[in-house]
């Protein structure tokens, strides 16, 4: 798998949020995208996940141009996603959430007569076990603790067997202990299927603890890319962060 981002540009009126950003992500990589506020990382992230259409430039997934495609198309092409604030289906139980995701990914949502509650029970259970929610399968998802909701969201993303997992601030709103637990889980899951992970993150412990590569955006441009150690040592990165922090 290869995600190839080429020369992305995006402006809001006179403000250029992205001025030609290019990078690649390959199977097995865990790439963190960082940058101070206003650096363009949200815009970049939202172009990749299909919520925004770029003014110029391309996003290619395994040589298929996916720029500007709707999120549901990207999901079918193997891009999974989690949100900054966990989004799940609040009226459903934990298991039903996963069952629905499985039904959707396998193109079975057109059926009007099958019983959705009997669909993919074993597979749903297996997925819940992988994220550590098996015991809570029958609970209403709205009653889950926030950290568990994040796990559920991960299960929903994994139901599509993604080749690439996009995570927007995966640990926002969590306690430090929970953060590393969640990220360890992500690493474990991603390594098993050599899923690529691209995530944005504010918490530098998370970034440097779990990323295999780091992209640094500043003022709409990529200013550094490399291993955590290399990026940490990069003088421009230090300048940007010290200057703005």
């Amino acid at each position: 798998m290869k995600l190839e981002v080429r020369e992305l540009r995006k402006s809001y009126g006179a403000f250029a949020a992205l001025r030609g950003v290019s990078f690649e992500v390959r199977s097995g990589e865990r790439v963190a995208m960082i940058g101070p506020n206003g650096a363009g990382k949200s815009t970049c992230f939202n172009v990749v996940n299909g919520q925004l259409r770029p003014d110029a430039g391309t996003v290619r997934l395994d040589d298929i141009d996916v720029s500007g495609r709707a999120p549901r198309h990207l999901a079918r092409l193997g891009i999974g996603r989690t949100f900054q604030t966990a989004e799940t289906f609040a009226s459903m139980s934990v298991r039903e959430n996963v069952q629905l995701a499985l039904l959707s990914h396998r193109g079975r949502c057109g059926s009007l007569v099958a019983n959705a509650r009997c669909a993919f029970v074993a597979e749903a259970q297996a997925l819940l076990e992988r994220v550590g929610l098996a015991a809570q399968a029958d609970r209403a998802s709205a009653s889950l603790a926030y950290a568990d909701l994040k796990r559920l969201e991960l299960a929903l993303a994994l139901a599509g067997e993604p080749k690439l997992l996009l995570m927007d601030e995966p640990t926002a709103g969590m306690a430090p202990q929970e953060r590393s637990e969640l990220m360890r889980l992500v690493v474990e899951l991603a390594e098993r299927d050599s899923t690529a992970v691209l995530f944005t993150e504010h918490d530098m412990d998370v970034v440097f603890g779990f990323a295999t590569r780091v992209l640094v955006l500043h003022a709409g441009a990529l200013i550094a890319s490399g291993t955590p150690e290399a990026v940490r040592a990069d003088p421009r990165v230090r300048e940007v962060y010290l200057g703005s922090a």
Binding site: N49, A70, P71, R72, L74, A75, R76, G80, R81, F83, E87, T88, F89, A90, S91, M92, E96, Q99, L100, A101, L103, S104, H105, R108, C109, G110, S111, L112, V113, A114, N115, A116, R117, A119, E153, L156, A157, A159, G160
Partner: peptide
């Protein structure tokens, strides 16, 4: 019956969270 079917689930999912529904592939 339809409310409890996969389509019914997709419909409820679309109501609960449009963004999440789209990212699991629901139109």
């Amino acid at each position: 019956r339809a409310v409890g079917s996969p389509f019914g689930f997709a419909l409820r999912a679309s109501r609960d969270s449009q963004a999440r529904a789209e990212t699991v592939g629901i139109d």
